[in-house]
Amino acid sequence: MTPIISIRNLRKSYGPKEVLKGIDLDIYPGQVIGYIGPNGAGKSTTVKILCGLISDYEGTVTIKGMDLKQDTLRIKSIIGYVPELAELYDVLTPSEFLHFIGALYNMTPDVTNDRIEKFLTAFGLKSNIHQRMDTFSKGMKQKVLIASGLMHNPEIIILDEPLSGLDANSVIIIKDLIQRLAKEGKTIFYCSHMMDIVEKVSEKIVLIDNGAIVANGSFAELKVQLGESSLEQMFANLTAGHTLTGAADDIMDAMHTQSGPSHE
């Protein structure tokens, strides 16, 4: 099988700082990739490159046999992207916002209309469809964003912390949705800090640290390789080393400090 996303020696620097130091990665259709790493590891840079937001990278990214730099538009139209922070024009209503997104994907208004209604009903936002989003909670905005990323029925879905702000029931819906999407052959690139969910939904886990891949494989494979029982433990060992347990001790100490250098 040919990979749907193929990344070769991907490098990217901001000024003198090299954020990605040669990433090699193959992703196959229908796979759910858990892309994890500590803050500043290069996760969102990778995502931005895959979405076509950053074009001045080195190395090659091939998606469905097309080069990302050459066929940017065709690639963008098969990708659905759900950004990390609730980045949306919140003076608009969900309906206005999603209609706009639909138009950008060249969908017909009828189809867009139909899908908006179905998406928002499923997310329990039907009654808010014509309210401005500046009054929405984080979870409500996140649902609108998820709808905006899936509405055009993309083949590849890039999720950047899609569960932030969602309540437990919505989390169940999204987890279920991810599995259903994968079954239908969609490829999912899932970026998150929530190890337990990554562990559950991902077929393959890619751990990056300092701009390089430090672990890559299914959860079972990684368990054997690294000899740890949970993804959390693997993550800690690979990215922080021994410093973590020390930190908890220090915090406990700090709580019990009675006197110290005076404030004034």
Binding site: C51, G52, L73, K76, I79, E87, L104, Y105
Partner: peptide, 13 residues
């Protein structure tokens, strides 16, 4: 800045 997240990832030339 929002344009970069909302419009640019879409297939807009």
């Amino acid at each position: 800045v929002k344009d970069n997240y909302i419009i640019l990832p879409k297939p807009v030339s």
